[in-house]
Design a protein around this nucleic acid. Sequence first.
RNA 1: CGGGGCGUAGCGCAGCCUGGUAGCGCAUCUGGUUUGGGACCAGAGGGUCGCAAGUUCGAAUCUUGCCGCCCCGACCA
Length: 448
Amino acid sequence: MRLSQFYLPLMKETPADAQIASHRLMLRAGMIRQEGAGIYAWLPLGFRVLKKIEQIVREEQNRAGAVEMLMPTIQQAELWRESGRYDAYGNEMLRIEDRGGRAMLFGPTNEEMITEILRAGAKSYKDLPKLLYHIQWKFRDEVRPRFGVMRGREFLMKDCYSFDIDETAARHSYNKMFAAYLRTFARMGLKAIPMRADTGPIGGDLSHEFIILADTGESAVFCDKQLIELAIPSKDTDFDGDLQPIFDRFTAHYAATDEMHDEKEFETSVDEKNQIAARGIEVGHIFFFGTKYSTPMKATVAGSDGKDIPIQMGSYGVGVSRLVGGLIEAYHDDDGCKWPMAVAPFHVGLINLKTGDAETEEACSKIYRALSVAGVEVLYDETKARPGEKFARMDLIGLPYQIVIGPRGLKDGKAEVKQRLDGEKSEVAIDDVAAHIAGLVHAALEYE
RNA sequence: CGGGGCGUAGCGCAGCCUGGUAGCGCAUCUGGUUUGGGACCAGAGGGUCGCAAGUUCGAAUCUUGCCGCCCCGACCA
């Protein structure tokens, strides 16, 4: 993509409203534009990151055996009256009326709808288990939206729902999502730690929040350092096999958010040198809730004895849009974003330092074409801006690699390559740079 | 939802106290000089001062109401 064709409205100055790094940088880097409290338009650059994250989530859901579908954003109040949540949900639910005066709502979540869908189509225990998910915009009329997309009112979420015949089977579904989440966040370059979460009236040990550590995190978290070093389940994990060892391995060490924190247990069960007390951002939440919806909504299947059994359910969310902010919190410096390759809006930024110069233009064009052919996503800055401005904006948007072509290097047949993550610069022969970078990009996109 | 604050040009702000018809920096446009880390000179465009009533000869400025946004707290993917 040529920068002159892209839409990238950057801000040199910091908007007064943005308090935390991710919000500030997303505004400055032209990723989002606020359209209302907690409501954002995704500009081209931000949209590309959002889609990359969404795709990783999708691939890992699919790998775990979940099946994608799409439910609407607008729901009928009637459905929510069945579960009793229409009145219980409170002011967080955005209520709407259609022209016929019917009560509608903008979905804050989809348990009722998916239950209705399964109820209509699953009649026998032979139709279970099922894992269904969608990636859809939600709206929760938060009392206080803040921190940009980290805490918006409208947000993109992946929510998966499991349907099982009994608790044993439900635990297996839960473990699938547990393992899938470990992989999902790891692929984005995030260390997400599963932490015990409140299970409410259901009880049991089947609710976990996945937390990434960040100084600006919303809640205090406490965990054992060993958790951070555990190996993530590999690509060839058999999701139909026994996943309990994975679950056990990741839940063997202490990890809790402040509301579940037990200081005494923390101090006695975790070596002092391994005690981590930090701030965290919740990026995923998995939850087994049994028959909470299936019973009131009469979602049952016939068991082997012919008797109706309410379906055992769980739900599994990932905050896709929130992750964009979370990733910046984890990867940035004073100059801007530092995207991990897997979620970077473009893999490489190509800078022509002297637009209008026949030689630098020709060199850039060649590199641009070679990289494109190699499947590398390039943002090519061929604008007339001054060098300093080009460097600064490339740092701001944070593409993993920058290739800098100027008369000075060209004279020696060299291109300059800068790695955004560590700022390391190197010189590469102009004829080799495209292949060299393509190799680095492809290597960085490999995962286990 | 309690407490606090703010709405003046795309962004950041001053002017308001003490009413007299709007200004600064950055950005934008034109011309010129520059050209390896957010240039310089000269010129230009851009604002019904959030909205509505009221007070007044006259309101960005004073009064009232409404709307919007932000921050702290309680709550949440």
